[in-house]
Amino acid sequence: MRKPVRAVMASAGILASPADAGAHLVNTGLGPVYDGVAHFAMSPEVILPIIALGILAGLRGLAHARTSVVILPTAWVIFGFVGMLLGPLAVSPAYESLPLLMLGGLAAADIRMPTWCMALLAILLGAFEGYNFGSAYFATGDGPAAVVGSAGLVFVLIALVSAAVLKTKWNWTRIAMRVLGSWTAASGMLLLGWGLR
């Protein structure tokens, strides 16, 4: 008598388990703009590449910093809207480590580059992360305000980081910024290993 009960309970448990799980969007109760800000603020895998880009731009000088501050939020909004229209892509989590590895490695190496290269990096980062962020709001009606709210925080973050790095005058502070870039690249390696697991 006990074996049929166990079989029924096990079957019910298997049938009740979800096929896949998805992350939920942050709901602050303050409106979609602040929901977008909170969603961005709780995504360290998105914040770290922006910090690495700010470090790289600040190490390269004022023109690079200004370029990244203008282009990154603009690309974020444009590709965020595209992501809202097209929806999420079936991409391996391992690809989320690429911005961390690339930008962290460039900041750690303190690579010299022309301003147009910094603009290209800002466009690529804004396209990748903005699309992912916007596609999370594919099925909701308050996506545009959330994307604009998150882009505001992207602007503040890249502006503060690049300005702080621009103010570094001593060699040891530049080395400290490069060390932060290497830590970002190391975080990318950890994320890559987790994604490939």
Rank of each mutant, 00 (worst) to 15 (best):
S135A: 13
D110K: 14
L160M: 14
A163D: 09
V70Q: 00
A90H: 00
G105A: 05
V148Y: 06
V147L: 06
I158M: 11
V82F: 08
T74R: 02
G87S: 01
Y95P: 03
V69Q: 15
M113S: 03
G130N: 09
F138K: 00
L72H: 10
A90E: 01
A164Y: 03
S97R: 07
M113T: 03
A163W: 02
G149F: 09
L100F: 10
M118H: 15
I111Y: 14
P144K: 00
A164L: 12
Y137T: 05
A90N: 02
I78W: 07
P114E: 06
L103A: 08
V165E: 09
V77N: 05
L120T: 13
A119D: 11
V82H: 00
G104M: 06
M102G: 14
I71N: 06
G83K: 01
G152C: 09
V161H: 13
G126V: 09
W76P: 03
A163M: 06
T67M: 08
A159R: 06
P93A: 11
A146N: 03
A107G: 04
N132R: 15
E129L: 11
G141D: 11
W76D: 13
F81Y: 13
I78K: 04
G105Q: 03
A163Y: 02
N132M: 15
G126F: 09
P99F: 13
F155A: 15
V154E: 09
F81C: 04
